[in-house]
Design a protein around this nucleic acid. Structure first.
Length: 805
DNA sequence: AGCACGCCGACT
DNA sequence: GTCGGCGTGCTC
């Protein structure tokens, strides 16, 4: 007799169980179970969720050890075999648990929710008195109830006496949303017979059934029925009991799109655009695994190239994945896709609820849509016949996931491109140095758009030296030039966007007598003052407190708020331009769902003269009346202790400048800075990417950073400083003796934020060019950590290819 | 990870 | 003599 065995990866993220376990497939499941199915299994003493990663007919494991699968959770498997392979690759590439790699590909609604349930075993009278009231309603009670009421001790006794038992149940988080509809009986004769049999007193029932006779077999919403026939639920209920119709439950998708969009057509392409499109489509036609870098200046119409390439892909009967950075996933952006491809588009981003995300995912899974537009995780869209993958704004750091698995969407995109033999298009006005270097070495194919699509001139950029302003005695944050420019816009009824680089610019709370700055209790970072609720908040761990009346150090009452947050700039703007209408966009004003869109929409409709904001306004803003962009301080991001700070600054400035004058009216940009001579600022003036690239590459070469060297970052943290330092040292020594001399190891050094959530953090950086043994060696380090160091309270994480240091 | 098993000190 | 501390080891 043949037996069927499934290899299962269980939902337990731990080092010793990071492998598959064999389970017996019960007979009734044999024809249903598939690779990628979710199953419920007993694992040791508990019930857990697992994924079937292989099916086979024999096993090395002694049969008496093997348990059967207890339940199959999906009729259709949730993961394709492509995903299973991808998970193995991710596990190796990012050094994570296989289960984490699998879970990251699915919407969180499909993750398991574990609950402990206590079941009564005997008569309620045999229970200790304290427990009795809990079981008066039902014999099953959630463990949490006892936890809440401090009865765990009594419960433990009861468990020991076996008057109750504890079981772990696995539940699914997400729910398929259903609506109740009425399905009218499809036999006309039956309806006629019923209508004849109805007593003359039941007039409404008669009306309803007669109406149904006109709509035999249809399924419709109860409300339509009531409306059409002027009846009520009671009448319908009666008619249903007679057998004229029945209630059915229908699966529906939650609709995250609030408004309808019209249809738009293809725009005419410039020569450059057509050439780029043609290269991409011919690569699709030849099923080449080719990665393109589409380098097009702001306003050059990259999106139109994407749209037409996707149209071609759909014509070939294939699917398309489009990734955009989270912050630019605005309605303006998604509408462009929906207006072109209508119902064929699913949108995935973090603003959706768990249920909405699940629905969008199901549309893809069930083949109802052909195009996905989404943030990072949309790269795992479960399409089976991908024709093109597009990463817009390829240089964005949001494509890198900052917790496990620490994957980069670009790498996953290229992997999937290889799997499906389809092109991957990386698009940007300011490509990451890594990508541009690869394009230059012909690893990627470079496509260039040098002209703006509608031939608009680039905005004129003026760089203002704030040191000169200071000499002139202007100590405000607005230079004379900027003030004049804003004034002229207000007079001309044109709009201004003011950009504040928030990093290092948030307002802190300072004691004027002793100089103490309020610090977070858990992190080594100063608290940020929020005027809206008069509190100070830690942006890293969420800790908050009311602004103290007296300085905690010297008891002085001279406490003041210091620094330049968006709120402060707003106040100053009102002083300078009392009649200007200002919209502020920052973490405070965009807390509620949809407020982001509302603000942008209001601005687009001309309800304000000035839009003031942080990073989030740098992207996607495209309104014809914006003719001035002001950057209040360009250099705040320049002095961060990160080797990418110059690149980030250049990208940001170019991006922001690109917001001005995208339509008929000419744009102007004013950049204020204390270091106008810095190449990142100077070269962003004319959007000269190439010279910037050359210059920055030289710097990277000299300092030994990417793209010349690869990086790996190991972070060690502990509640005790000494322990953290000691183990960081241990770690470095271990790496030195296990890696070859081709590798340079820097550290240990204290991390940028040396204390976070009450843990002291150290890190060391590994720079290498070629080190084939790096991953195996790091895996050994992880093994050492997971098997020994972890017991002493050490936390260690490895980030291959870190984006921030 | 999370749970059982098992071996030693301080309590009714 | 028993309760409970947490070191060790296993999970198909």
């Amino acid at each position: 007799m043949t037996i069927f065995i499934a290899e299962v990866i269980v939902d337990v993220a731990a080092y010793p169980v990071d492998r598959s376990f064999d389970y017996l497939v019960p007979e009734e499941m044999v024809s249903l179970i598939e690779l990628g199915s979710r199953v419920k299994v007993q694992f040791g003493p508990r019930n857990v969720l697992g994924f079937v990663v292989a099916l086979k007919q024999d096993t090395e494991v002694p049969l008496e050890k093997i348990k059967p699968i207890s339940q199959l959770l999906d009729i259709e498997p949730v993961l394709t075999s492509e995903m299973l392979q991808l998970a193995k690759w991710l596990k190796h590439e990012t050094i994570c648990y296989e289960i984490d790699a699998l879970q990251v590909m699915l919407p969180s609604a499909l993750r398991a929710k574990y609950e402990k349930i206590i079941t009564l075993q005997t008569d309620i009278e045999n229970l200790p008195d304290a427990l009795k009231p809990f079981f008066s309603q039902s014999s099953k009670v959630n463990y949490k109830e006892f936890e809440k009421n401090n009865l765990l001790h009594t419960l433990k006794m009861a468990l020991k006496e076996k008057v109750v038992v504890l079981e772990n149940v696995v539940k699914q988080k997400g729910q398929v949303k259903e609506v109740r509809k009425v399905q009218i009986n499809d036999e006309l004769e039956k309806l006629i017979a019923l209508s004849k049999g109805i007593s003359n007193r039941a007039k409404k029932q008669k009306v309803l059934i007669e109406w149904m006779m006109q709509h035999v077999g249809e399924t419709l919403e109860p409300d339509t029925l009531y409306h059409e026939t002027n009846t009520s639920p009671q009448v319908l209920q009666a008619v249903i009991e007679l057998g004229a119709a029945k209630f059915v439950h229908e699966e529906v998708y939650r609709d995250p799109f609030s408004k309808e969009v019209g249809k738009t057509n293809f725009l005419n392409l410039t020569d450059e655009q057509s050439l780029a499109l043609q290269k991409i489509t011919s690569s699709m036609r030849d099923k080449r695994t080719e990665t393109f870098l589409l380098h097009g200046i702001t306003g050059s119409g990259k999106t139109e190239v994407y749209l037409q390439a996707i149209a071609k892909c759909l014509e070939d009967g294939k699917e398309a994945i489009v990734l955009v950075p989270e912050i630019s996933l605005t309605p303006q952006m998604t509408e462009r896709f929906r207006s072109r491809f209508g119902e064929l588009v699913a949108v995935m981003h973090s603003g959706l609820s768990v249920g909405e995300k699940y629905d969008e995912w199901r549309k893809v899974h069930q083949g109802k849509v052909k195009v996905v537009v989404g943030a990072r995780s949309a790269i795992f869209a479960p399409f089976e016949n991908v024709g093109i993958i597009i990463l817009d704004e390829e240089h964005e750091s949001t494509y890198k996931q900052e917790d496990n698995p620490r994957y980069h969407a670009r790498d996953v995109a290229i992997w999937r491109g290889k799997y499906h033999n389809c092109p991957v298009v990386l698009g940007s006005a300011t490509p990451s140095l890594e990508s541009y270097a690869r394009a230059k070495k012909n690893v990627y194919s470079l496509l260039t758009l040098k002209e703006r699509a509608m031939k608009q001139a680039l905005p004129t950029v003026q760089i203002v030296d704030l040191r000169e302003e200071l000499k002139k005695g202007n100590r405000s944050m607005f230079s004379q030039e900027l003030i004049e420019s804003i004034e002229s816009r207000i007079n001309k009824k044109e709009q201004t966007v003011l950009f504040l680089n928030r990093r290092g610019y948030s307002s802190f709370v300072l004691c004027r007598d002793c100089g103490t700055v309020l610090q977070c209790q858990n992190c080594d970072i100063s608290l940020t003052y929020h005027r809206s609720n008069e509190k100070c908040k830690c942006h890293y761990c969420g800790y908050e407190e009311f602004v103290p009346k007296f300085c905690p150090q010297c008891q002085s009452e001279h406490i003041r708020f210091f620094g330049t947050g968006t709120q402060k700039v707003e106040e100053e703007l009102y002083k300078l331009f009392p009649h200007a209408r200002v919209l502020r966009m920052d973490v405070d004003t965009t807390k509620t769902k949809g407020s982001h869109e509302q603000i942008l929409e209001a601005f687009g409709e001309g309800k304000a003269d000035i839009l003031l904001g942080t990073q989030m306004i740098a992207k996607g803003l495209d309104y014809p009346n914006i003719t001035l962009v002001g950057v209040l301080s360009a250099d705040t991001s320049l002095h961060l202790p990160d080797f990418r700070s110059a690149e980030k600054t250049f990208q940001l400035l170019t991006q922001v400048s690109g917001r001005a004058g995208r339509h008929e009216k000419k744009g102007e940009v004013v950049i204020q800075t204390y270091t106008p001579e810095h190449y990142a600022i100077e070269l962003s003036k004319a959007q000269h990417y190439e010279p910037f690239y050359e210059r920055e590459m030289l710097m990277r070469h000299l300092a030994g950073y990417p793209p010349y060297y690869y990086l790996a970052l190991v972070q060690i943290s502990h509640e005790d400083v000494m322990m953290a330092a000691e183990y960081a040292q241990k770690c470095v020594e271990w790496l030195r003796s296990n890696l070859s001399f081709n590798v340079s190891i820097i550290g240990p050094t204290a991390a940028g934020i040396s204390r976070l959530q009450n843990r002291y953090r150290y890190q060391c950086l590994i720079k290498y060019k070629i080190e084939p043994d790096l991953i195996p060696t790091l895996m050994q380090l992880i093994k050492l950590y997971r098997s020994q160091w972890i017991k002493n309270g050490i936390l260690l994480s490895i980030d291959l290819d870190p984006t921030m240091i």
